[in-house]
């Protein structure tokens, strides 16, 4: 067993959300520096408005503007903020009941320390300078001082188009680990070797090795070094560009059954026009210059024809 290789992995996308008619009212309000709640069937006002009434299940249709000052219902102290939170210094999250609302709303409260927060304190909205109809149009909440300039907080009158969509970035960072068995394969690549492993039960050779033979449910163990030649079992010609693609189309993506392996690996076919690639074509690995090698399959640029005669269909038919 070798120790697993790890590497950072990022999952990042700016999601485009259409918001529907109810949230549109709320988010349009935020853009226009107004807090808009919805009237529930039982008469209460909820901020933000739920899209559907909790009792009648009908879509909310009546909207009510509420005050921008409210009372802290409960709070917790964030001593170590994480990326994306409204403030990058310690702050409080608070559930706040805005004047005229019957349900508390969550947001960040900007105060210097936990000593400066208490349940029951009065807070008000601090609007972001640039607003587009998202919850972060409220930059945060701040203590509502009696002598604050109320005029500065006066809601603007909105006459822009209603907000119908928002963009919410989701950017997550992970530490990815390969299994111990896969790590054997990747470390082998760093040495210019192709290492498979044999299942102790069915004796099939897996490349890359597997934490569990998918037929027998036990880890592959015995290392088998494989030659750098093999047979194209099947393939497709990729003509389509896609987000995150690292290779320019058109290119051939093929299953290559390395000689001595019982399962094909997927890789690119090089040095031959795409329309001349064939099932059964014999190929060999094309390695990058040694100084560029790492623990990655990218050490191999792809596979190119060896010039040998094609393999008989029967010799690889069971690998399709």
């Amino acid at each position: 067993m070798t120790s697993p290789l790890t590497a950072p992995m990022r999952v990042s996308f700016d999601y485009t959300r259409s918001v529907g008619p109810v949230l549109s009212k709320f988010l349009t309000g935020l853009r226009d520096q107004r807090l808009i709640g919805g009237r529930l069937a039982d008469g209460r006002v909820a901020v933000p408005p739920p899209e559907y009434d909790p009792q009648t299940h009908l879509a909310l249709t009546e909207f009510v503007e509420v005050g921008q000052t409210g009372t802290v219902v409960t709070w917790s102290w964030v001593s170590e903020p994480v990326p994306g939170q409204p403030l990058d210094r310690p702050f409080a999250y608070a559930l706040v009941l805005f004047d005229g609302s019957d349900t508390p709303m969550l947001h960040a409260l900007d105060v210097p320390s936990a000593d400066a927060v208490r349940t029951g304190m009065r807070v008000r909205v601090r609007w972001a300078e640039e607003r587009s109809g998202v919850i972060t149009d409220i930059a945060c909440l701040e203590p509502a001082d009696a002598d604050a300039d109320v005029a500065a907080q006066a809601p603007a009158t909105g006459d822009g188009e209603a907000v119908t969509g928002i963009i919410t970035p989701v950017d997550l960072h992970y530490t990815y680990a390969a299994s111990s068995e896969e790590s054997t394969f990747f470390r082998g690549l760093a040495e210019g070797r192709l290492i498979g492993q044999r299942c102790p039960t069915c004796h099939k050779v897996y490349v890359p090795p597997r934490g569990a033979c998918p037929v027998d449910g036990v880890a592959t163990i015995e290392d088998v070094e494989l030659p750098h030649t093999g047979t194209v079992t099947t393939f497709c010609i990729v003509n389509v560009p896609f987000l995150g693609q690292r290779i320019d189309p058109p290119y051939v993506s093929a299953y290559v059954l390395l000689d001595g392996a019982d399962i094909a690996i997927q890789h690119l076919i090089l040095d031959i026009p795409a329309d001349e690639v064939r099932m059964g074509m014999r190929v060999e690995a094309v390695w990058r210059p040694r100084e560029e090698w790492g623990t990655t399959i990218e050490n191999i640029n792809g596979f190119r024809p060896t010039g040998e005669p094609d393999a008989d269909f029967a010799s690889f038919a069971q690998h399709l």
């Binding site: 918001v19 949230l23 917790s76 994480v82 994306g84 939170q85």
Partner: peptide, 13 residues
């Protein structure tokens, strides 16, 4: 995802 996640309230808070 519209009114809470963009504030990234963490589980502990």
């Amino acid at each position: 995802p519209y009114t809470l996640t963009p504030l990234w309230p963490d589980t502990v808070s």
